[in-house]
Design a protein around this nucleic acid. Structure first.
Lengths: 333, 333
DNA sequence: TTGAAAGCGCTAACAT
DNA sequence: ATGTTAGCGCTTTCAA
């Protein structure tokens, strides 16, 4: 099958393999004449360098890895864009892996990429991954996390202030005059979810008058939103919340659609705000207010941070962005 | 940094490096006692095998590649699920690459994966890629295409019958009594788009009475759908189509939302059908009828086909699925 | 069951 | 400017 190596090229071009290698890596150090002979030989033979050989010799690859729980979630794929873009600028390839928020798969990929000796890993995970990562890092593969790691780690990370995001969302509903708020999302054990609830609950407490009900559901999807909205519809009207903060936009989309079909007026009867500001939120039948975190710039920042760590520029080991309130019709005054 | 190799393990375990390798690859051929010593040494040292070394020795990697134009499109990410699943069952890793429908990026990834000596590539592309792939294949890396390749290639592929899909969609609108159909989508040069239009146009012609207007737009996104729907709204009512076939669901979602906001009743005034049956189509405010192609099974089939090609089981070189009409409220009678 | 040793394809001294 | 050569880490005969 694939048999053509650098020596075949050298043979055909009638030079030494060292010269071919030079031509490949330092074209300026090869005479024009031989350069042409070599190029012709490469074309004739269909030579493609074997990266395993190069990598083995160099002791390192030129790839980084990006692990995300769900690449089909627009949030993570936007990050991927930024990552690829910046990596390409630095001459690095990116291996993307879809972990499906599954620990076993995360572990498998961690292992695989470590075996491949990637230069570093960028990791987004719902699962606590700090421990497993610590081992990988101690063996020499640097990593950058998306999202704030648990206390007590020195993991570099890129994050948004989720607590602030939660606060912004709840405060917005309160400013609208809503008093019976509901937080919909879960599992609360997930850091992002817990942080957003924390922020929301802070805002509610400080308001002195509003109340916050928590609907802890396992599934942050459109289907999950529909299901929980059906429960809401089953309640007598006075017991329904008048302001809903859905912990992500998918959930909000599902909730919105079911509420509307149930005859609830949004935002008049119930104001609704999501989180993440994915494209589908803006293009929903009633555009949904949301909390926007940086997406693409997120990926860029992570690559920069990783490169910094690799280069040994210890400097800042964390980058935190502030989320931003995006008001749309679902919470229009 | 990463210095621990098989020899270090061998040294610490007081065996030869060959024995360590045996333990790694054929554990049954190593005595229990040494096996334990080796394992202990591995743990102590934190040894992680270097896949470059293995790959170089073996002459092949154990990874395949999946190139898709847009992983954030649920259609392609569903395929990815199937691919990963089946690949894992066969002990293969999958490298996912996002080409952004950009030829240069496709080429870059093609080259990169060829250099990495992947076992094979699975490729979804809007661009004609057959020629470039031919070279790769001739050098020994097999490939399987998603979607029917241009005539005259022997590229193995997995596809759905897009012409049939287009026909099903249009026929459904016609069966509903719609006479002034509009096909919305483009660019027509893209195979899938052209094929779907072909099928729709066949159905219209055979109906003998219906007409088909083509709105050729460059952008198959929600935003694109909104834009074209605004054009429709600007028309006098009698000049609007009474049945719309959007070439994909994203487009249909955008169209639906703008039409509804414009006071058009769906499906009463205009019946609307999309294509792909992504999750968002079913969960739209008015669930959108669509043409469903197999998604996950698609990825599975592609891997199987690739494995077949690798193994040399020439058998069938093409797998074609039939799409299926999914009727929802947007075309309810 | 275990060890010794050759070599996969490549790069980078070093020598010329 | 070009050639020679020694490995990078691993697997796998082949012997013992």
């Amino acid at each position: 099958m694939r048999k053509i190596g650098i020596r075949d090229v050298a043979l055909l071009a009638d030079v030494s393999n060292g010269t071919v290698s030079h031509y490949l890596n330092h074209p300026d150090r090869v005479s024009a004449e031989k350069a042409e002979r070599i190029q012709r030989a490469i074309d004739t033979l269909g030579f493609v360098p074997n990266s395993a050989g190069r990598q083995l010799r160099l002791g390192r690859s030129n790839a980084i890895a990006y692990l995300a729980p769900d690449v089909s979630n627009p949030f993570f794929s936007s990050i991927a864009e930024g990552v690829e873009k910046r990596a390409a600028e630095s001459g690095l390839s990116v291996f993307i892996a879809n972990t499906h928020a599954d620990r076993a798969r995360e572990d498998a990929y961690l292992q695989m990429f470590e075996q491949h000796r990637v230069r570093g890993m960028l990791i987004a995970s719902y699962e606590p991954i700090e421990d497993r990562l610590a081992q990988v890092r101690s063996r020499g593969t640097p990593a950058v996390l998306f999202g704030r790691p648990v206390e007590g780690t020195d993991l570099p990370y890129v994050a948004v202030d989720e607590v602030l995001g939660g606060r912004l969302a709840a405060q917005h509903l309160i400013d609208l005059g809503r008093q019976r708020l509901a937080f919909i999302g879960g599992p609360l054990g997930i850091k992002q979810v817990g942080d957003r609830l924390q922020g929301a609950s802070d805002a509610v407490r400080e308001s002195g008058s509003a109340t916050l009900e928590v609907l802890n559901i396992p599934d942050r999807t459109i289907a999950g939103g529909k299901a929980v909205a059906r429960e809401l519809l089953a309640r007598p009207v006075p017991l329904r919340p008048d302001g809903i903060f859905a912990v992500n936009d998918l959930l909000a989309i599902g909730i919105l659609q079911t509420l509307i079909r149930g005859g609830v007026r949004v935002p008049d009867d119930v104001a609704l705000i999501g989180y993440d500001d994915i494209e589908f939120a803006a293009s929903s039948i009633i555009p949904i207010s949301s909390i926007r975190s940086p997406h693409e710039v997120f990926g860029i920042a992570a690559v920069d941070l990783l490169l910094g760590v690799i280069a040994g520029d210890a400097e800042d080991i964390e980058v935190v962005y502030e989320p931003e309130l995006v008001v749309r019709d679902s919470t229009a005054p």
